[in-house]
Simulated scan of single mutants.
Amino acid sequence: MFMVKAGLTRERLVRAGAELADEVGFEQVTVSALARRFDVKVASLYSHLKNSQDLRTGIALLALEELADRAADAVAGRAGKDALTALADVYRDYAHEHPGRYAAAQLRLDPETAAASAGVKHAQLTRAILRGYDLSEPDQTHAVRLLGSVFHGYVTLEMGGGFSHSAPDTQQTWSRTLDALDALLRNWPEP
């Protein structure tokens, strides 16, 4: 029988897993890798974690919560393009600061876990911003999907080096992309 190392909790393990994800990549995070980090036997972590998928889900939920908190702070008191830019910048900055956690935030969660996660808060924040653009349903849903696609696609290409070999610099392109999204949202096409 293995002794659980003093001070190890699920929360501490998930946070350490998130740090590990930022260092080595989300796909490389396993219970075994985490055990090596704490210099403990793998079996000693199973009183806190079911398996590597449980650890990854914990990291995803942590990342979604961190992103939601940052986004809520960033958009508070803003409307229209200012709110849109603040939200977009939160996602981009978080992805650059925490690449492993950002990848974790993209993890597909089971419906019950997803419904109880901060992912719902993200959708609510985005919808709150879109109210400033006077979009009704189902156009709000289309716009939420559009914004998520653009933010994630841009960040993924940028972090993968897809824009590094050409001018103008990526900050200029990001700013112009947000200008274009704002213009589109203000002039949403009729069906």
Rank of each mutant, 00 (worst) to 15 (best):
M1L: 10
L8C: 06
T9G: 05
R10N: 02
L13I: 04
A16K: 10
G25Q: 11
Q28R: 15
V29S: 04
T30N: 05
V31Q: 05
S32A: 12
S32T: 14
A33N: 06
L34D: 07
L34S: 09
R36D: 13
R36M: 12
R37K: 11
D39H: 05
A43N: 05
A43S: 12
S44C: 09
N51P: 10
Q53W: 08
Q53F: 11
I59D: 11
A60K: 10
A60D: 14
L61W: 15
L64H: 11
E66G: 04
L67V: 13
A68Q: 07
D69G: 04
R70N: 05
A74E: 09
A74T: 11
V75I: 15
A76N: 08
A79C: 01
G80H: 06
D82H: 02
A83R: 04
A83W: 12
L84C: 07
A86W: 12
L87W: 14
L87H: 11
D89I: 00
R92I: 13
A95D: 12
R101H: 10
A104D: 14
Q106S: 05
R108E: 13
L109I: 08
S117E: 14
A118M: 04
G119Y: 13
K121C: 01
A123T: 15
A123S: 15
Q124S: 08
T126M: 15
R131Y: 05
S136C: 10
S136T: 15
E137D: 15
Q140C: 14
V144T: 13
R145N: 11
L147S: 00
G148K: 01
S149I: 04
Y154L: 00
V155W: 03
M159P: 00
G161C: 04
F163W: 02
S164V: 01
S164Q: 01
H165A: 08
D169R: 00
D169E: 08
T170M: 01
Q171H: 02
T173N: 00
S175Q: 08
T177Y: 03
A180T: 08
A180N: 03
D182E: 06
L184P: 07
L185H: 06
R186S: 10
N187M: 00
N187W: 03
P189E: 01
P189M: 00
E190S: 13
P191L: 00
